[in-house]
């Protein structure tokens, strides 16, 4: 039992955090002016006071805020996220439909950013005064300071008009293409621009981080030891330096996951990608609060899962962070000198 205790306490923490997310988001939305009924009435072209009051009562909007909150929390606990005013579907169904597209987009963008960024950073660290190194620095600065939607729009213009080799909207071809392989390729083809757009800003920050981290590691004493062993420069870099240099990169992956979701809202909107981000954008416009709340909830869950995974990866590359294996953890450092 006791060996599961840390896991249990983490789980309890996670649940507490989710509850806080629900409550805060719920209250935040109460602060926004207007409510869904205003929007619906607006779209209907107006309605009488009685109809409006009836609709409010129907949606439970006439009850005190705290009562509404309690009802909402109770429902979420049973997996009921309510019904979308605008899409006329249970919110959960809606979200489960859109979730895979977003996960696909975010993970692709993240992989591109981490891989490309780290590689660029490492190459430029090996020749800190070389051409590539300067190019990476400039590109990083540009990529870092350009807003995501701007990068997206530029790519969209480029590939819609000038060089139409990638589709600029949606996730699949309406005409459909043959077989499962065709379908996968089709999605991949549509994925290129949104994923690259979302990745751009992060490629920049990963390459900067990897470069700095690699430069620092290459100056470390243990790298001199590795050279003293007669290892080739390539083995020194990839066998000894790389794993150490990756530690800050992995930390950043965990920290950035939330930002990546925020970026996804913009990118999905620009490229019409049918994911949670675009759904968020649409439900904000329509004041579709149940949908918006559920999106925020699921984003929080995803970020927490991502952090947990980062933590695992982190432990895997850095043995100094306890728990690489239980047997090793028991072999505590001896007091200095006593057993040397």
């Amino acid at each position: 039992m006791s060996r599961y205790l840390p896991a249990l306490s983490r789980l309890a923490q996670a649940l507490g955090l989710l509850l806080a997310v629900i409550v805060l988001n719920f209250l935040l939305i109460q602060l926004a002016p207007g409510d869904p009924v205003d929007v619906i009435v607006g779209e209907m072209g107006g309605a009488s006071e009685e109809v409006i009051a009836l609709m409010r009562a129907d949606y439970g909007l006439d009850k005190p805020v705290l009562t509404q909150l309690a009802i909402y929390v109770g429902k979420v606990a049973t997996g009921d996220f309510g019904y979308s005013y605008y899409f006329n579907q249970p919110v959960l169904t809606l979200i489960l439909q859109r979730l895979p597209a977003t996960i696909l987009l975010v993970l692709s963008a993240l992989s591109i950013a981490v891989l490309a960024g780290t590689l660029l950073g490492i190459f430029s660290a090996r020749r800190p005064k070389g051409l590539l190194s300067h190019a990476v620095t400039i590109f990083s600065l540009a990529g870092y300071s350009a807003p995501v939607f701007w990068t997206g729009l530029m790519l969209l213009i480029l590939f819609a008009n000038v060089w139409p080799i990638f589709p600029v909207s949606g996730m699949t071809n309406i005409r459909g293409s043959g077989g499962p392989v065709g379908a996968v390729l089709d999605v991949a083809h549509h994925l290129v621009l949104p994923a690259v757009t979302l990745a751009t800003i992060y490629i920049a920050s990963y390459s900067r981080l990897a470069r700095a981290s690699m430069l620092e590691v290459l100056g470390a004493d243990y790298i001199r030891t590795a050279r003293a062993k007669g290892l080739s420069e390539r083995r020194v870099v990839y066998g000894h330096a790389l794993r150490n240099a990756l530690i800050p990169v992995v930390t950043m992956v965990g920290l950035q996951f939330g930002q990546l979701f925020a970026g996804a809202v913009l990118v999905e909107t620009v490229f019409n990608w049918p994911g949670l981000g675009r759904l968020a954008y649409e439900s904000i416009l329509r004041r579709d609060y149940p949908t918006l709340l559920a999106i925020l909830f699921f984003s929080a869950v995803l970020v927490m899962v991502a952090n947990e995974l980062t933590d695992l990866a982190y432990r895997k590359i850095d043995p100094r962070i306890g728990g690489a294996s239980r047997r090793r953890r028991r072999a505590k450092p001896q007091p200095k000198g006593a057993s040397a």
Partner: peptide, 14 residues
């Protein structure tokens, strides 16, 4: 199978 941080200074030098 230990990592360096699991050893004392004297053992590391060994």
């Amino acid at each position: 199978d230990n990592y360096p941080h699991e050893l004392s200074g004297g053992m590391r030098q060994r």
